[in-house]
Design a protein around this nucleic acid. Structure first.
Length: 822
RNA sequence: GCUCGGGUGGCGAAACCGGUAGACGCGAGGGACUUAAAAUCCCUUGGGCCAAAGCCCAUGCGGGUUCGAUCCCCGCCCCGAGCACCA
C-alpha cells in the first residue's frame, strides 16, 4: 500500500463552509426546479412517499426529520439509479390535536395552521430534501377536503357507509367526545374527570366486510414484517362455530340464542350462558322476579365509560331467570348477563365453559355456577375437580362428552360441529375482531360530512357538484355539553334546502375522522392542481401504486389499514386498477430522547435547527442516519456528530487536493481502487436495505484508506465517493461535483458501477481452528482446496503444535475456515 | 395477560447463510507537528493472568443441538412498543 507522504502545496482551497454551500445549492435547486417532477411526461417513474406530518406548533423535531431524511436518501438513490423520482410532502393538519392546541392558546385553527405550515416548510427546506413542493397539499385546504367529502359519498353510494347509534367516551368537564386513547384509567387524560358513556348516532364504514381480503392480501405485500403482524392481529381472524341454544321457560319460549365459539369441542362443558347487557334479547329473557336486579345492572354498566368497563378486573353479572338447553347434553343451563361479554364481537352472547376458559371460570367461581371438565391433560383424572381452567387445546383429550371421549381437541372440533350441524344447531363460522370504522367526530376542525337531513327524504347526500361543503369560520369552535359538533350552533350554516325537494333541511354537523383525510392523500399528490377530479386516471396509472412508502409503525394499523380499505373500494368501483396502495412499506424506528418518546410535556423535544446551524444540514442528515439502524431508531445523542462532520471535512479536503494541478498526472493506487470498488458495491447494496448506518461506515472506512498518512488522493479515487455520498449529503456532493467539472448536478451523473474483478480479493484470511478453537489465520489464495489448506495449516508451527498427531475429522468451509479435530 | 421488537466494550453500534465477536464512529490514553493551543495525522483501547511468548474468560441468565452458537431449540430474567374480558 502506498504510504508516500506528499505535503500538499494547496494554495487557495477554500475551507468547507456548510452554510455557504448549502445555501448556494438550495437556491440553485429552487431556481432550476430540479426537485419538480414532470408528472405527466416522466419516464421510469418512482413514487417515494413518506407519511405526511401533522404540522404542530412546536415545529419539526428530529424524530420527524429522521424519517424524512431516511426517505429522501432512498428517493435520491433511486434518482441516481436513473428513475424519475416523485417525492411529495404535505400536511395532515385537520384533527383533534390541532383543535385542542388552538383552544389552549386561544387562537383559531384557521390562523394557526397556516403559520405552523410555514414554519414546517422552512425547517424542511433547510434539511435539503428532494421534495417537489409544487405538488404539496394540506388536508385542510378546501381543494383537498372537497375530495375527502367526495370519497365519503362514493362509499355511501356503494352501500359501505351507514349510520348507527354507538357508544362514545364523553368528558363532562371538557364537554367533548374523547377517543379511546384519550381516556387514561377511566378519566380524561387532560382534566382527570371520570369519563362517561354516551350514545350518539354516528357514521360508519363497512371495513369489516373487507376483513378477509385485507388479511389475505398481506401475504403478497413487501412490507415490514412487524407491520404485517400488527395488521393480522388487528384484523383478528378466528375460526370456530356458531351454535344455537334454544331458550326454555321463563319469559320467552321458543326463540334461541346464537353464540360464537372457537372451542366447539367443549360444548358438553357449557354449564351456563352469558349475554351482553346490550343484547336485544335481554328484555324478553328477563323474568319478572329478576327484573329489578337486571335493570339495576343494565343502568350501572351503561353509565360506565367504554374503557373502564373493558378493564374491570372483577367479574360482575346478573341472572335473567331464563334457561337455555345445551344442544349437546340436552340439559337446562341458566342465562346470565355480564359486561365481560361484548356486543361488538361475535353474536354478543357466549356459551360459558368454565372448565376451559379463564374468564368463564372466574365468573362461575364468583356466582357459584357449576364447573365441568370435558378436556383432560395427559395422566389427569377426568373426574377430579378443576382448580383452574384447563385451556391447553394442543395437548387435550376430550372426556365426559359421550361419543367424543378420547378424541384429540382438533378432531373433536370437527366432529362435534358436524354432529350439531346435522341437528341444525350449528355451523362453522369465521369471525374477525375488526370493527366497522366510525368516522363521525362531534368536533369542529375537520371536513363536514356531506349529508343533509330532510324530514321527508331522510339522509340525503350533498350532490357532488355542490362540493365542497365548506367548513365555516366560526369563533366559538369550542365543544360543549350538547353532544353535537360546535357547527350545530350555527343555524345560518346548517339550515339548507333539501337537495331532493328544496324544503328547509339540516346539514350533518359532525365532521369526519382525520384518518379519512389521510386514507387517500397518496392518490391526490400526482394530481395536485387538477380541480375537476380527485385524481386523474392517466396520472394515477402512471404513478401508482406507491413504489416505496416509509413511515412510523405507530400507524401500522389504523392509517395503513384504512388506506388499503379505501383503495380496495376505489378498485372495486373501477376507478383505479390496483387494490393495494403501497407496493413496499418500511417502518422506520423511533428517535427517542433519554429513553422516552419526544414530547413537549416531557420537555425532551430536540429541534433540528440548532444542529443544522452548528454542523450543517449535510452533517446532520448523515449523522441521523449513522446513529443506528434506520428501522430501529434509537436514543438521540449528539455525541458523535463530530465524527460525521470530520468525514465530510476529509472528503472536502480530498477533493481539493485531487483537483489540484500537481495531482493530475499521478495515477490511482490499485489497492485504493480495489477498496473503492468494494465500497461502491457495499453502499449500493446497503441503501436499498435501508442499512444506512453501515453504508456510511463503509464510506468512512474507504476514507481511512484514501487518506491514510495524509496521502494525496487522485481524482479517480475521490470522484465516485462524491457520488456515493450524494444521497446522504447532497449539498456538499453537488459542490464537489461542480468542482470536478462534471456537470450541473451530481444527481444527473448516475450511480458508479463497480468492477467485479476488483471487488474479489485474490487471497483471503483462512481461519484455522484446532478442535473448534481459533489458533491462527493464514493468507491463502481464493480457490484453495481442502488438501492444500490442511497442508498449509500443518506447515504452520504455531498452529500445528496444538494438534497431537494426525487430524481426525476435518471441517473445511471454502473461503472461510478450516477446523481440524484431533 | 397476549403479540411483536430488543438485551453485544466506557458509549452509539457491526457481524447479510451457524464460521476470526466488537467493523465504523464517539469517548479515553499516548505520540508527531506547534512557542503554545486548536486543527490535522499516527498508535493503543472488552476483561483477567503473565516479565514475555502466551493462556484463560467474555454477546442478559441456565440448559441443549453442533466440529463450531451473538445467530437455531427449550426454560427463565430485564427493557421497549402495541393490543387488551375478542369467547
Amino acid at each position: 500500500m502506498s504510504n508516500s507522504v506528499n505535503p500538499t502545496p494547496v494554495e487557495e482551497t477554500p475551507a468547507y463552509n456548510p452554510a455557504v454551500v448549502e445555501q448556494k445549492w438550495q437556491e440553485s435547486w429552487k431556481e432550476r426546479q430540479t426537485n419538480v417532477t414532470d408528472i405527466p411526461n416522466a419516464r421510469d417513474p418512482f413514487y417515494a412517499l413518506m407519511m405526511f406530518p401533522y404540522p404542530s406548533a412546536e415545529g419539526l423535531h428530529v424524530g420527524n426529520l429522521f424519517a424524512f431524511v431516511g426517505n429522501d436518501i432512498y428517493g435520491r438513490f433511486q434518482r441516481l439509479q436513473g428513475h424519475n423520482v416523485f417525492e411529495p410532502l404535505g400536511y395532515d393538519a385537520f384533527g383533534i390535536h390541532s383543535e385542542n392546541y388552538a383552544l389552549k392558546v386561544g387562537k383559531h385553527p384557521m390562523e394557526l395552521i397556516p403559520q405552523n405550515i410555514t414554519n414546517f416548510r422552512r425547517q424542511l427546506e433547510r434539511a435539503g430534501l428532494m421534495v417537489d413542493w409544487s405538488h404539496s397539499l394540506s388536508t385542510t385546504d378546501p381543494d383537498y377536503y372537497k375530495w375527502t367529502q367526495w370519497v365519503f359519498l362514493q362509499l355511501l353510494k356503494q352501500g359501505l357507509a351507514y349510520k348507527k347509534h354507538a357508544a362514545v367516551n364523553w368528558c363532562p368537564s371538557c364537554k367533548t367526545v374523547l377517543a379511546n386513547e384519550q381516556v387514561v384509567g377511566g378519566a380524561c387524560e387532560r382534566c382527570d374527570t371520570p369519563v362517561e358513556q354516551r350514545f350518539l348516532s354516528q357514521w360508519f364504514f363497512r371495513i369489516s366486510d373487507y376483513a378477509a381480503r385485507l388479511l389475505g392480501n398481506l401475504d403478497q405485500l413487501d412490507w415490514s414484517e412487524t407491520t404485517k403482524t400488527a395488521q393480522r392481529n388487528w384484523i383478528g381472524r378466528s375460526e370456530g362455530a356458531e351454535i344455537r341454544f334454544p331458550v326454555k321457560g321463563a319469559a320467552a319460549e321458543g326463540p334461541s340464542i346464537s353464540v360464537f365459539t372457537t372451542r366447539p369441542d367443549t360444548v358438553f362443558g357449557a354449564t351456563y350462558m352469558v349475554i351482553a347487557p346490550e343484547h336485544p334479547m335481554v328484555p324478553a329473557l328477563t323474568s319478572a322476579l329478576y327484573k329489578s336486579a337486571v335493570d339495576q345492572y343494565l343502568s350501572r354498566s351503561a353509565r360506565q365509560d367504554v374503557v373502564t368497563r373493558k378493564s374491570n378486573t372483577e367479574k360482575t353479572g346478573v341472572f335473567t331467570g331464563a334457561y337455555a338447553v345445551n344442544p349437546a347434553t340436552g340439559k337446562d343451563i341458566p342465562i346470565w348477563i355480564s359486561d365481560y361479554v361484548l356486543m361488538e364481537y361475535g353474536t354478543g352472547a357466549i356459551m360459558a365453559v368454565p372448565g376451559h376458559d379463564e374468564r368463564d371460570f372466574e365468573f362461575a367461581r364468583m356466582f357459584g355456577l357449576p364447573i365441568a371438565r370435558v378436556v383432560c391433560g395427559e395422566g389427569e383424572d377426568a373426574s377430579a375437580p378443576l382448580e383452574h381452567a384447563f385451556t391447553d387445546s394442543e395437548r387435550g383429550i376430550i372426556v365426559n362428552s359421550g361419543p367424543f371421549d378420547g378424541m384429540a381437541v382438533a378432531t373433536a372440533k370437527r366432529e362435534i360441529v358436524a354432529m350439531l350441524e346435522e341437528k341444525g344447531a350449528a355451523k362453522p363460522v369465521i369471525n374477525y375482531r375488526l370493527h366497522d370504522w366510525c368516522i363521525s367526530r362531534q368536533r369542529y376542525w375537520g371536513p363536514p360530512i356531506p349529508i343533509i337531513y330532510c324530514d321527508e327524504h331522510g339522509a340525503v347526500p350533498v350532490p357532488e357538484k355542490d362540493l365542497p361543503v365548506l367548513l365555516p369560520h366560526v369563533d366559538d369552535f369550542k365543544p360543549d355539553d350538547s353532544g353535537v359538533s360546535p357547527l350545530a350552533r350555527h343555524e345560518a350554516w346548517y339550515v339548507v334546502p333539501c337537495p331532493e325537494c328544496g324544503k328547509p333541511s339540516r346539514r350533518e354537523t359532525d365532521v369526519s375522522d382525520t384518518f379519512l383525510d389521510s386514507a387517500w392523500y397518496f392518490l391526490r399528490y400526482p394530481s395536485v392542481g387538477i380541480d375537476e377530479l380527485p385524481f386523474d386516471a392517466g396520472l394515477t396509472k402512471k404513478w401508482l401504486p406507491v413504489d416505496s412508502y416509509i413511515g412510523g409503525n405507530e400507524h401500522a394499523v389504523l392509517h395503513l389499514l384504512y388506506s388499503r380499505f379505501i383503495t380496495m373500494v376505489m378498485s372495486d368501483m373501477g376507478i383505479i386498477d390496483f387494490e393495494e396502495p403501497f407496493t413496499r412499506f418500511r417502518a422506520h424506528g423511533l428517535i427517542i430522547r433519554n429513553g422516552a418518546k419526544m414530547s413537549k410535556s416531557r420537555g425532551n423535544v430536540v429541534i433540528p435547527d440548532q444542529y443544522i446551524d452548528k454542523w450543517g444540514a449535510d452533517a446532520f442528515r448523515t449523522y441521523l442516519m449513522f446513529l443506528g439502524p434506520f428501522e430501529e431508531g434509537g436514543d438521540f445523542r449528539d455525541a458523535s456528530i463530530s465524527g460525521v462532520k470530520r468525514f465530510l471535512d476529509r472528503l472536502w479536503a480530498s477533493a481539493a487536493v485531487a483537483c489540484d494541478s500537481s495531482a493530475l498526472d499521478r495515477r490511482a493506487d490499485p489497492d485504493v481502487m480495489r477498496k473503492l470498488h468494494q465500497t461502491i458495491k457495499k453502499v449500493g447494496e446497503d441503501i436499498p436495505r435501508l442499512s444506512y448506518n453501515t453504508a456510511i461506515a463503509a464510506m468512512m472506512e474507504y476514507m481511512n484508506v484514501l487518506r491514510r498518512g495524509e496521502r494525496t488522493p487522485v481524482r479517480a479515487e475521490v470522484e465516485p465517493l462524491v457520488q456515493l455520498v450524494a444521497p446522504f449529503a447532497p449539498h456538499v456532493a453537488e459542490e464537489l461535483w461542480e468542482k470536478f467539472g462534471r456537470g450541473e448536478s451530481v444527481f444527473d451523473g448516475g450511480w458508479p458501477a463497480y468492477d467485479p474483478a476488483l471487488v474479489a480479493e485474490e487471497t483471503f484470511d483462512l481461519v484455522v481452528q484446532i478442535n473448534g478453537k481459533t489458533r491462527g489465520k493464514l493468507v491463502v489464495p481464493r480457490g484453495i482446496s481442502q488438501e492444500e489448506a490442511v497442508a498449509a495449516a500443518l506447515a504452520e508451527q504455531s498452529v500445528s503444535k496444538f494438534l497431537a498427531g494426525e487430524p481426525g475429522k476435518i471441517v473445511f468451509v471454502p473461503g472461510r475456515l478450516l477446523n481440524l479435530l484431533g
